[in-house]
């Protein structure tokens, strides 16, 4: 039993320690661009600060997912006679959400930053830029939602008594966690440039949003491969 608790507190640290990296950098990026834009357009400070806080709140979601899993792990109480292999499942859950939220946090910051840049240039476009930013950030969060799903599955299923299966489960957590980093950053890059383009040419917003969503969907494919491999490793092997 003590061994499982040892694993659960280690996993809690990994989850929130890694999970805080992305969101923190992403939010810092948004604030940096907001300050830069304020230097250019001090009159638009109300709009800029409001949109900055909305963008940062959406970016924060990834870190909140990591926090939730971390708190579940901190307060995890093993049942009497539970197999010590459950410890590896908990470690895998921590790795999945910790690594998996780095990309979404960084990616969420990129469209937020370019939205600030656009408002700083033309404050009258702030409404459409905010909508564009939120759509882009929402799609970016899918990679962290996949990681959260895998993490919650790992927290809740009963451990197997087969040692080979334990290796498979740790592999599944790493597959989802590492696999979510790239698509998260990639989705953010798409949304960043789409937002910049909308800021320069607001009349083409429909075309740009459509292209952005198609581009993000294609970027998301490797994330889906990781999810599939992760679920195969957890349930099929």
């Amino acid at each position: 039993m003590e061994t499982i608790t040892l694993f659960s507190i280690l996993a809690a640290g990994i989850a929130i320690g890694l999970g805080a990296i992305g969101s923190a950098i992403g939010e810092g990026f948004i604030a940096m661009k907001a300050v830069e834009a304020l230097g250019r357009q001090p009159n638009a400070s109300g709009k800029l600060i409001r949109v900055m806080i909305v963008g940062q709140a959406v970016t924060e979601a990834a870190a909140i997912f990591a926090l939730v899993v971390s708190l579940i792990l901190v307060f995890y109480t093993p049942e009497a006679g539970e197999s010590i292999y459950k410890g590896y499942y908990l470690l895998s859950a921590g790795l999945a959400i910790g690594l998996g939220t780095i990309g979404a946090g960084l990616g969420g910051g990129l469209p937020g930053g370019s939205c600030m840049e656009g408002i700083g240039r033309q404050p009258e476009n702030s409404d459409i830029l905010t909508i564009q930013m939120i759509v882009g950030q929402a799609v970016t969060q899918t990679s962290s939602i996949f990681a959260l799903t895998v993490s919650l599955i790992l927290l809740s299923i009963d451990p197997s008594n087969d040692i080979v299966k334990v290796f498979a489960v740790v592999g599944g957590g790493l597959a989802m966690g590492l696999g979510a980093i790239g698509p998260g950053i990639g989705d953010g890059l798409v949304a960043k440039n789409a937002n910049l383009a909308v800021g320069k040419n607001p009349r083409q917003m429909g075309l740009l949003t459509r292209t952005m969503v198609i581009g993000q969907a294609i970027t998301e494919t490797t994330d889906i491969y990781s999810l599939v491999v992760s679920l195969i490793l957890i349930f099929v092997v």
Binding site: A168, V170, G171, L174, G182, Y225, V229
Partner: peptide, 12 residues
Amino acid sequence: LLGAGIAMGLGA
């Protein structure tokens, strides 16, 4: 199996 997870994760 562990290697499969790392391969897909880093490869993505």
